[in-house]
Amino acid sequence: MRPFSFNRAETVKEAIAALAQNPDAKLLAGGTNLIDLMKYEVTHPGMIIDINRLPLKEITDLPDGALRIGALASNSAVAYDERVKARFPLLSSAILAGASPQLRNAATTGGNLLQRTRCYYFYDTAAPCNKRAPGSGCSAIGGVNRIHAILGANPACIAVHPSDMCVALAALDTVVEVEGPQGAREIAFLDFHRLAGDEPQRDNTLQTGEIITGLRLPPNPFGQNHTYLKIRDRLSYAFALVSVAAAIEIDKGRIIDLRVALGGVAHKPWRDTLAEREFADRAIGESTFREIAERLLIGAKGQGQNDFKISLARNAIIRALRQAAAGTPQDQTVKAIQ
């Protein structure tokens, strides 16, 4: 790690001011991604602003039935919170599918949203990488790209967003609350992360100097009709090759509201709300599930080593929809897929 100076913020305003005064600074939450990247010198901030003392740990009920999760609530605290387990079990399940108990204890809600890709070349400071060093090229295109994107890929960067939690948040129509030098604002979850476009170095739409203060989860009608299905190289403590967060509101065997978010397939947690809406009022069943999977994967394109992800994603979507429709969400302990 390269030397840096250390600054502890006691209030959100202080953190924002410190960020504004030090363009070379980075915020430190759980540190599980930032410290890792600093050890590899993928990032080397001149200053660290520790935000762990900010009063952003609370999980609170809002009058409209929504739940507000503070940006510093740990991944464990959220996953095991009784209200989250009862009203947003999809979120709890997705968090428990990721990382390890130790990492989830340290990792925070805000940090999870801002974790960076696990593309091998992004970590390898000797390799060209447009995300780490804009304009240097993309080593994954034509290189080792088994874990890379099949949707929304781009000639500048084919990396994927690695989070499990964010896939569930995308399905749950979450709102991200941020605060910056210009004041507070809200960002719809699907607008928070971005496709690589011509600025692959930017993972999200946060403006300079803004910090995430919390998330707001609106109430949902899914009950047990949800699942988080994660497919990976080993059964635990591994990032997703493909993951699916599915939730369906069903009435008399027909789809009222369909949500399917995909992880491990794109530069952002992937959701196609237009495609979802085409299936309103369709009968629940295998042929509908197959059609949904085909529809969501229109335009999917492999890069060679990751071609297998297209059929993996198709099968995972069908399985996930079956689990969600049956009200039998994937068990994150017993990994057998029903």
């Binding site: 250390f6 502890r8 430190l28 759980g30 540190g31 599980t32 410290i35 890792d36 660290i48 520790d50 762990n52 464990s76 108990p101 130790q102 990492l103 204890n105 340290a106």
Partner: peptide, 15 residues
């Protein structure tokens, strides 16, 4: 009381 990976924690952040 909580288990964490000490390799990814800056000691100064635990004051």
């Amino acid at each position: 009381g909580e288990r964490i990976n000490s390799c990814l924690k800056l000691a100064v952040s635990l004051d």
